[in-house]
Design a protein around this nucleic acid. Structure first.
Lengths: 241, 241
DNA sequence: TAGTGGTCTAGACCACTAG
DNA sequence: TAGTGGTCTAGACCACTAT
């Protein structure tokens, strides 16, 4: 035993939900009733309900009660990192070049910058068994005094490159995953046949004000690419209603 | 104002973390010190720390203190559902057939069943603008008395098909995302050219004891397929150390 | 031994909902 | 008006860590 009371309550209620005794939409016993049932104080009951809420099992409606939530079946946790989300992990990374360019329309759009603003472009090639398996291009708005140190960029992931000063906590990221026919640039770098398909992962980095601070694309050889995701009921906002 | 005190404390500390005043590994002020600083009771301070912990900002070590966590940069939230994770959404679903078969090796492995066990196979085709854009095969262990009602299967997602009786909360899911060259079966159903590539999403459904209760693959035409994911610091286990 | 976090109590006042 | 959840207090005892 030794298990805290509040955990016991959590597991009791979870079981009722998992086995269908309590169904989505059902109201669970009121906090005062649970206090009586378990002979505990209200704060202890509320601790249990908080756990259930953050794990996505219930939500509460002030003045009414706590209710079983409709599980979000479509929500998954995905782990991705362009440096090791590949089968067998990258063995070698080649820094092709680092340039400062005038952005094209796509880059202007994705970085939300004026067209006069210069952009740093970093291009890398990743190898497994001497075979190029991924081709990576990143765009970062250039600012004066920006340190462009090749050694640092060589092995770094995107957030590490961009967030020299900012806390990594402040960075939001958006991924877009798709397949596309390779263009000439990709074909040359990944040594493909024309019209071969590549897995494409687009990364957009945003700061705390949702301003883009970096944009990049990684093209993966299909044979070497795979992502895993697992279901998740966790819910950031505890008080959805 | 009207904002609860504990939210104020949460945001104060978040800001210190976001702006780098507090760095990963740093210990934050002790609970008693925070009580003094904000002139509140310990339970209020602890409520704030609980929020910060579930949002992945801090972790606590009993007897020592609360510490700023190293943000997990590689964690994303992904939304997927084979029925509408496609650009423009599926307009029509065609149920090709429902069969009861002897499982092949792959199916035996994925469903963890004896080879004598029969398996229900459901095959569907999804259309947009009369074009087949996805080909979907699902395998479910057959049990006596299983209702195989075509109408129900027609538009249902995988968990809905499998979990007739179980609470959907009890189901865990694993996704595998990859690209592969299409085989003859896929080529025929999606009207592809030989050696075209398809986006492949494998779904495995597990019950509360991690026993497989369903396995399926959906093949998507690359042109029509795209997934989005956003970064997440949320952490289910509040007490990682 | 002093300090830390983990659990828990028995109250309190508030805003909201419902009959 | 009675019941609900949301916030908050001022204590308590415990196990653990450090010195």
């Amino acid at each position: 035993m030794g298990e805290p009371i509040y955990i016991t309550i959590v597991e009791d209620i979870k079981q009722q939900i998992n086995y269908g005794t309590l169904k989505p939409g059902d109201m669970i016993s009121s906090e005062n009733l649970l206090c009586d049932m378990y002979k505990v104080s209200r704060m202890t009951v509320r601790k249990s309900l908080t756990v259930l809420a953050t794990e996505g099992y219930i939500y509460s409606v002030p003045g009414k009660g706590n209710f079983v939530k409709e599980p979000n079946q479509d929500k998954y946790i995905l782990y991705f990192n362009e440096m090791d989300s590949i089968e067998g992990s990258i063995e070698e990374t080649q820094l092709l070049d680092v340039n400062i360019i005038k952005p094209n329309l796509e880059t202007i759009f994705n970085l939300q910058i004026p067209k006069s603003k210069r952009v740093v472009v970093v291009r890398r090639l990743m190898y497994i068994d001497e075979v190029p398996v991924a081709y990576d291009i990143k765009y970062i708005p250039y600012y004066r005094g920006m340190p462009i140190v090749e050694k640092e960029i060589h092995y770094a992931t995107f957030p590490e490159i961009v967030a020299k000063k900012k806390s990594l906590f402040a960075i939001k990221k958006e991924l877009t995953i798709k397949v596309q026919k390779s263009n000439e640039d990709i074909t040359n770098n990944l040594k493909l046949n024309n019209n071969d398909w590549v897995m494409t992962i687009e990364q957009k980095l945003l700061d705390e004000l949702n301003q883009p601070i970096g944009w990049g694309v990684t093209y993966f050889l299909g044979e070497y690419f795979q992502l895993q995701a697992v279901s998740s009921f966790i819910d950031k906002s505890n008080n959805i209603y």
